[in-house]
Each structure stands twice: as C-alpha cells, then as structure tokens.
Amino acid sequence: MYETSYHRADSVADAASKIGDEGKYLAGGMTLLPTMKQRLAAPDTLVDLTHIGDLKGVSVNGKEVRIGAMTTHAEVNGDAALQSACPSLAKLAGGIGDPAVRHRGTIGGSIANHDPAADYPAAMLALNATIHTDSREISADDFFSGMFETALNEGEIVTAISFTAPDKGAYEKFRNPASRYAMAGVFVADHGGDVRVGVSGAYSNGASRNSEMETALSGNLSADALDGVAVDAGDMLSDIHGSSDYRAHLVKVMAKRAVAAM
C-alpha cells in the first residue's frame, strides 16, 4: 500500500470539504482497501464516511423505504421492518459476500462503486429506486451509467437510497465460483403488474434492465413467460469463468428462478 492520510468525517459537509482532488471517500472499503493493498490505487486522502450518523439506518413508512448510504449489508439484512416491507432486498443483503464483508460493506459504497458484479445495483433498478446525494436525487435508471461508472460528479456523496416497496420481488444469482460475486444476478420486482427486471454481473455496461423480460412478465408473472425471451449474448461480459453465451444463458435461468420464487 502507498502512503495515504486518513480523515474521519463527522458530517457530510465535513467530508466534502476534505476530499480534495486526489482523495477517495471510504465507505466499507471492501473494494477500495484491497485495491490499495495491491498498489493499484493510491489516493492521497481517505475520507471515512462510516461514522456520519445521518448516513446510517433503515426507515420504513408503509411501503416507503429509505436506507442510509452507510448502512451495512448486515443491518439491511437484519432490519425487521424491511424484512416485512421488502423481504427480497433484505435477503439479497444477507447473500452478499461473507459475514465479514456484510458487517463492513455498505449499500452506498456498493452502488457508488458500481462493480458490474455487485448485487445491489440490480435491485436498485428493479425497485425503481431513487439515489439521494448531498446535492440532488437521481433515479436508478439514470444513476448506473457504465461499468464502474455512475452519474455521480466528482466529490458528490451518496447519502441514501429510497424506493416504494413492490408487491412482490425476488433476487436470484449465480455466483462466480472464485470470487463469489454475481456472474448473473437477476432481481424481479412486481409493481402492481408492472414488472421491472434488474440484472447484475452479466452486462458489459454494468447493471442493466432487461426490457424484453419486463414486457414478457408484465401481465404474466410466471417462469414460463420467459421461455420465448432471447437474451442477447452480444451485450454480455466474458471472462475465464463465463463466456458471454454462458452468461446470457445464466441470466435467463436466474430470471426464471427469481420469478418462480416470487
């Protein structure tokens, strides 16, 4: 690891004032710290957001859900109100990484990093979530702009996400056998017959919706409804664990399993 300085922010404003040109916000650090240890990233300053109280916690009001950006996966997984309002998201959080990751990693860190294989981005798309930052609100559809890219401006801080809980939802993923990140993670959410499908791990431009599946499922929420949908391998990532063809196949398998689980 290269030398860096560390600042523990006590407020969002404090964090924004310390980031500078070469700094990085530190959330759970589940991606950033290993990258730094491998000397592949060298921020001059780390501004730690995890001690800012305003950024933490889950609030549920009827079907309206708001989750602070620095809420850990374990907290999302264990929140009783969320388990009742949107069990599929609570369950998703319980399946991220391993217990150590779930107690450090945060929802804000995950979506701001937009690793194409992270689980939360698929859910944000399917849940039609809103991403709140220290300066504005961004719809999930506009937020995830490409692999490891988001609509965030330099220095902009994700403060929370919010969404209206769907009638039903489910997430199924096929994990990379080495890293255990999603190779194909599909979140299906039914918003009063209007079905949204978010996909992680597979698309080369990062988390994406699959509109063909959404059309097929809206009005016929059954696994069989997906039989006729062809997933285009041309849009898919390819690596030693999964060719684009294999990933396209897995997206369909996981989508069917998600629908079957709803």
């Binding site: 056998p177 080495a178 890293s179 690596d239 030693i240 664990h241």
Partner: peptide
C-alpha cells in the same frame, strides 16, 4: 471442480488471485 491455473498465450497468469482462482 474448481482449481484452475490459467495462463494466456502470452504467459500471463490469468487466475492470479482468489478473485479468479477457485479455492
């Protein structure tokens, strides 16, 4: 069913960490 040491044609080790080497 898991472990695979993958070199590309240039001799770069592709499976060079636990992100890619399936333990």
């Amino acid at each position: 069913i898991m472990e695979e040491t993958v070199y590309d044609d240039d001799g770069q080790l592709i499976s060079a960490s636990f992100m890619d080497y399936r333990m």
